[in-house]
């Protein structure tokens, strides 16, 4: 979906460049909250991974292909601000090294493929995670829907930019219809790749999924009193005992608390306090 030079006129390209610059500036500020020395290398990895997967065009209907845009994936894995930066870095490298995406169109491309996809995907993802029952499957499902929506949204934003500053005069209804139509299909590929990747990381390192933090933190909270008790009841090594052991012996005392760390999929059971914790986590 990389816009080359010569699609959009100079003033609108500059305007889009200003929007893109503002978006990147805001993201640079916001990313500070999302990154520390532990997660910064992982964010770099997400950028490299998106670059790699963007090379993998998959066929869609009628002699067309599509590829990942990656905004949804990056936003869910490393946070929205870092996500905008990830995709922007990818677009910059593609424009400078691989002659993919025009240089004067870089602002259009960042606005379209980095900012639009991240904003649409992350807002939708947060809403869905809030509505759906807590758990990893919900996070993966929300990632799927968010990614699927982000691609036609980017196509729609391209259409708007074209409407304002297109150098050719193709009827807008045609542009909008065919752009959004084909990108709904491409969005399904985006959704599949995003859900697969988010699901895989959730399975291996759920603590590294930014979008799943609200789900993991409350478990930490419940774990502490649980493990303290585990130690007190004679388990000398609470940390090792926690995954399997505590459920049975401690159950009479506080069943909900003890089952939580052992079975994160059951996080839904801990909702009352979990919900209370969430706003704090969002702020933190």
């Amino acid at each position: 979906m990389h816009v080359p030079d010569g699609f959009i006129d100079a003033p609108v390209s500059i305007g889009a460049g200003a929007v893109a610059a503002a978006g990147v500036a805001v993201s640079l500020r916001g990313a500070r909250r999302e990154l520390d020395e532990r997660t910064a290398p992982l964010a770099g990895l997400v950028a490299a991974f998106i670059f790699a997967v963007q090379m993998l065009n998959f066929p869609v209907a009628a002699g067309t292909s599509g590829h990942l845009l990656g905004g949804a994936l990056a936003a869910i894995l490393v946070g929205p601000c870092t996500g905008v930066l990830c995709v922007s870095v990818v677009l910059l490298m593609q424009g400078l090294l691989f002659a993919d995406g025009g240089l004067t169109a870089l602002g259009v491309n960042v606005t379209d493929m980095a900012i639009t996809t991240v904003v649409v995907a992350y807002v939708l993802f947060r809403l869905l995670v809030k509505v759906l029952p807590r758990g990893r499957r919900s996070v993966t499902a929300a990632a799927f829907v968010a990614a699927a929506a982000s691609v036609p949204a980017a196509a729609a934003v391209f259409t708007v930019i074209y409407a304002v500053g297109g150098v050719t005069d193709v009827p807008l209804s045609k542009v909008a219809g065919s752009m959004i139509g084909v990108h709904v299909l491409i969005g399904l590929g985006e959704a599949a790749i995003t859900a697969l990747t988010v699901g895989s990381v959730l399975a291996v390192r759920p603590d590294l999924v930014h979008g799943a933090r609200g789900l993991e933190r409350p478990l930490e909270l419940h774990t502490r009193p649980g493990t303290a008790k585990a130690a007190q009841d004679g388990h000398g090594r609470p940390e090792k005992a926690a995954p399997e052991a505590p459920a049975a012996p401690e159950a009479p005392e506080a069943p909900a608390r003890h089952s939580a760390p052992a079975a994160p999929a059951d996080a839904g059971r801990t909702t009352p306090s979990g919900v209370r914790d969430r706003p704090q986590d969002a702020k933190a």
Binding site: R32, E37, L85
Partner: peptide, 19 residues
């Protein structure tokens, strides 16, 4: 080369921006 360059530039940016 693209993966290497993106990894280097991306990590550089995120390392500078980090807390």
């Amino acid at each position: 080369i693209g993966v290497g360059a993106t990894l280097a530039v991306g990590t550089g940016v995120f390392w500078v921006v980090r807390r």
